[in-house]
Design a binder for these strands. Structure first.
Lengths: 215, 215
DNA sequence: GATTTACTTGAATGATCATTCAAGTGAAAA
DNA sequence: TTTTCACTTGAATGATCATTCAAGTAAATC
């Protein structure tokens, strides 16, 4: 009856998702044509509409895929590099920096791009983007809680975790526009200095031009 | 009879610019069709191509217009509300908050949207976007310098000014995705707390228990 | 009065868009 | 064997895209 022995069948579906994930990231949603998706997935339009009811449905599936990939692709590799919770937060940011480096500052966070591009009326898409952001913030918040004793007790950890995401997205956005890492690096440096202030370190981020004074 | 050298002519051009500024802000560049621009400007395609060589040329002119409007539209109104340089910085951010409120969190900074949407290969556009960001940062930097004696001497004012823009753009981006002001407000609150730390105030931003929201 | 210049008109263009569909294929189920 | 059904093919569809252009208006200049 409903025995799903079909694996190669779903491989076509996966190829559509892979192609779309890549193209939506590189060119955006509107600028990506179905023809490009079909070519990259090596399949025909009839096949596509067998699996997805529309281009928009594909977008939603891609966004669901990002949510599934959040833990294994974004969080886990960063956490593997450090055990200290605050180091882990900045390791996540370092992951996005590497993405900027690899692409010559052209492409940063695919969700940030879609958050600003997708029309506000598309609630299913924006709800999924918001869910992704929520998961991202929750991961950072988990780190902050693990280091709670280092922060002032009155500090709003939710707001701080949101602020970390804000720093990443805002830094990526600026670096994309000028094609230099500087705005991203400066933003992360300021965030690091804020953390230093919060945790009692009196660091104030020395200017990069010469050798800093303190520490 | 009517001696109007070339004013009414340029008014058509201005209508194109006004229409495009609005539509690129509301719908983005790719999603805005020429037909919509022509309709909103109440003109025909032949008129359009008399003034602009292409849709892309119109985009560049819109971006130039934003740069011209930076001082009178963004900076001056904020500066008029406060004389203290740090208050002025947060008044600029407040301006973007009001934009979010007016549009139900749908539309924030038009340049941020275009920074992520426009293809990276479009250097003329990205150079203009970067110039806008540069002007924005310079205005903030001017405030920081006016309050220089309140900050640690080793603080990198350029980086901090960039960080202010990062906070705005990242906050707007998140608020758009979830259609709530909270991420923007939380981000600005954290930035404010950072400023408090830097200027020696021992504030750590108390958690907003319930609906407690301070300006 | 004739010519030139600045702008406007709007149908036509061809490219590209997402989507549809009738006609398949091949393997599992009956 | 026959039927069923998940999946594929790819040309066709009509809508929409940015852009073009020949024809026109009206004021300025000659």
């Amino acid at each position: 009856m409903i025995i799903q022995v079909k694996k190669p069948a779903s491989s076509t579906r996966t190829r559509f998702l892979d192609a779309a994930r890549y193209l939506f990231w590189e060119k955006g949603y509107a600028a990506t044509g179905m023809a490009e998706i079909l070519e990259r997935a090596e399949a025909n339009s009839g096949s596509f509409y067998h699996f997805f009811s529309s281009k928009e449905a594909l977008l939603l599936a891609v966004l669901d895929g990002y949510l599934e990939g959040l833990e294994p692709v974004i969080v886990k590799p960063a956490f593997a590099r450090h055990s200290d919770p605050i180091d882990r937060i900045f390791a996540i940011l370092q992951g996005y920096r590497e993405r900027l480096v690899e692409t010559g500052c052209r492409y940063g966070c695919p969700l940030g791009r879609l958050a600003l591009e997708i029309e506000a009326e598309n609630l299913p898409a924006h709800n999924r983007i918001a869910a992704n952001f929520g998961g991202w913030i929750a991961a950072v918040r988990g780190c902050l809680e693990a280091a709670r004793d280092r922060f002032p007790p009155s500090l709003d950890l939710d707001a701080l975790a949101t602020f970390v995401l804000t720093t990443m997205e805002g830094g990526v956005l600026q670096s994309r526009s000028c094609r230099r890492l500087e705005p991203f690096d400066q933003s992360v440096a300021q965030l690091r200095n804020y953390f230093a202030c919060l945790t009692g370190g009196r660091d104030t981020v020395p200017k990069p031009k010469k050798k800093g004074k303190q520490e």
